[in-house]
Every structure is written in C-alpha cells, then in structure tokens.
Amino acid sequence: MNDAIVLKYQISPDDFTRAGEASSDVKGKLKQLGISPEAVRKVAIAMYEGEINMVIHANGGEIVVEITPAEIKMVLADVGPGIPDVEKAMKAGYSTAPDEVRNLGFGAGMGLPNMKKYTDDMKIETTIGVGTTITMLVKL
C-alpha cells in the first residue's frame, strides 16, 4: 500500500500569477499528512524558489514530487539555457535575472542558496543549451 505518492506539475514559463501554485499544492498535501511543520516549511520554501527559477530562467518545465513516509524528493527538470557557472549561482546575492523580473521583487540571488539551505540534499545537473535538473531531498 505504501508506494511513493507521485505528484507531477507542469510549470508554465513567464506566468508569474501562476508561479507558486505547485509548491502551494504540495504544501497543502504535506499538511494533510501531519508531518512536522518544520519539514513542510522546508519543502514549501525550497520548492517555491525552484518553481520561481523555472519561471524566470528556464521557460518552465516539469516538477515531480515523490513522497514516501521517509522522505520527500523533488525533481525540477527544465529545458532552459542551463547554468554556466554553478558555483557562482550558488552564491547568495548572485543573480542573472533581468531587470523587469527584479522589479517584480524577484531575482534577489537567493534562489539556489535557499534551496540548498532548506533541503537535506541538493543535486544540480546542468548542460548549457540543454537544460537543468535539480533534485532536492527533505528527510522526514
């Protein structure tokens, strides 16, 4: 009975009104599981950051969330431009977001650092011109 619960979300590009819908849905489901509020918070923040990144930088993509009683795995896959310098991108405050996005209050350069901060494990696979897949893990 206890196979992983798999949730799939398509993230549409450049649609800031819908950005956050996926993470909000996941958050609601995690609360129904009755897992610790702290774990819910970590997943919600990390996934929201990732979702926003996909909207800003990567023409959208797909998020697959796998929930088991032991952990929550989030796989964020896009076919965007890829990240040229992962080390730089991981630095707090570093951002390549265009001005119009920053004017909306995004692009503070805290996306990837926050994703790392709020998860127990994060893996970035990226190829220039092909896309980026970020896998994040929050243990329960």
């Binding site: 009975m1 206890n2 609360k31 129904q32 599981l33 009755g34 088991t68 009683p69």
Partner: peptide, 17 residues
Amino acid sequence: PVFSLGDNLMESFARLG
C-alpha cells in the same frame, strides 16, 4: 492538526494516496 487525513503518518500517507 485537524486537517491531517489520518491519526498517524502511515495512515495519513496511505489515505493521501
């Protein structure tokens, strides 16, 4: 936690599925 689906994690997990 009134919105929990079950009384414990395993029950809630099965019910969410």
